[in-house]
């Protein structure tokens, strides 16, 4: 759908939704996305029945093409709504979509701020945010893990089978993916699968898990975190999975001595997590999940390389995005290196 047509349909949708006299869409632009999943930003100037005008900064999340296996926009909407109601800083949902756009969609409010991690790590204006970020993220994560899943109808999220421990189920899932897609052998991953299997935590604890909790998915300002984004990998699982993932070295952007996103120590993150009502943190267990996080990121990199190789020279993605996808294949070695270091410690 071209922007003109999208703008017209959005206007009609918002007019009905707000019972408005008129609606104008301004500054519509594509933020991210390819052919199947898109995120658009725009301002809606709404004139209500009494002639009062107000401007709503909004974001459209839409699926021009069905993407099987990925979280539906309806579930994502429900998840953001639940998180917001439970005190997690997220963009406030504005409206669930209907058939107005001819594709699944929802609208949420646009949160202003910065998302580029290097700015947070280097720029003077974020000094205060940098100092408080690790503790803030720890406290927010505790809130995410305390979201009552059933009360919000979130039991539709992917979950490990009832009779399996989440760690084992997740490891199986990623090993199957690895075996199905890898174009090349990776002995470091073979060692890691065995190493992790010998250390599987038996805990059957289950909570909402964000699934991609890291510094690159935070909107922040000079004062600190404003919203947690990218909930598409959320699932039911073991809460320590998120605590391991947040420390994967690939999200430290060169500040290797500060494992939590290059801004803080594990200990300050864990203290804030526990103080905000998170379960007591067992460092050995988090170490399992951090190793798993490296393996998982490595397998995701293989997936991106594979997608590039499968679509070489064709496909609907612009060439620049294809090149980016292909180049991610050369990041697999970073995760192998981290896994070897972890395994050498015993």
């Amino acid at each position: 759908m071209d922007p003109q047509q999208l703008s017209e349909r959005l206007t009609e949708f918002l007019q009905r939704l707000h019972n408005a006299r008129s609606v104008q869409i301004e500054g519509l632009r594509l933020l991210t996305g390819g052919a199947s999943r898109q995120t658009w930003s725009f301002d809606a100037v709404i004139e209500d029945a009494d002639g009062q005008r107000r401007t709503l900064p909004l974001v459209l999340r839409s699926d021009p093409r069905p993407s099987p296996g990925l979280m539906t926009r309806e579930v994502e909407y429900r998840l953001l709504k639940a998180a917001g109601e439970e005190g997690v800083p997220v963009p406030k949902v504005h409206a669930m979509g209907d058939d107005s756009l001819g594709m699944p969609f929802f609208l949420m409010e646009r949160v202003e701020g910065e998302t580029i991690p290097r700015r947070l790590l280097r720029d003077d204006i974020y000094a205060e945010a940098r100092a408080s970020m690790a503790a803030q993220l720890g406290a927010i994560l505790a809130k995410i893990h305390r979201v009552p899943v059933e009360r919000h109808g979130l039991d539709v999220l992917p979950a490990p089978p009832p009779d399996r421990a989440p760690a084992e189920a997740e490891l199986d899932r990623y090993e199957q993916t690895y075996r199905a897609i890898t174009p090349e052998p990776h002995p470091a991953f073979e060692l890691a699968f065995r190493w992790l299997r010998q250390r599987l935590p038996e805990s059957s604890r289950r909570t909402l898990v964000h699934g991609d909790y890291r510094i690159g998915n935070v909107i922040f300002g000079p004062e600190g975190a404003r919203a947690i984004l990218d909930w598409e990998l959320a699932h039911i699982g073991h809460p320590m999975e998120d605590l391991g993932w947040v420390c994967v070295r690939s999200w430290r952007f060169g500040n290797d001595d500060l494992p939590v996103g290059g801004v803080g120590t594990r200990e300050e993150f864990w203290r804030a997590y526990e103080a905000a009502g998170g379960a007591p943190v067992d460092p050995d267990r988090v170490r399992f999940w951090e190793a798993f996080g490296n393996l998982r990121w490595g397998i995701i990199c293989i997936g991106q390389a594979k997608a590039y190789l499968d679509g070489l020279g064709r496909g609907t993605m612009p060439p620049g995005a294809q090149m980016e996808l292909g180049s991610i294949g050369r990041r697999i070695a970073e995760t192998e290196w981290e896994l070897l270091k972890l395994m050498e410690k015993g």
Binding site: L191, D256, R330, L340
Partner: peptide, 22 residues
Amino acid sequence: LRRAVRDKLLVSNPAWLEEKTS
């Protein structure tokens, strides 16, 4: 594997091998 992966990183991202530690 340390040698083989180090060789890969010397090509893909040499900076990865210079880990900053506190």
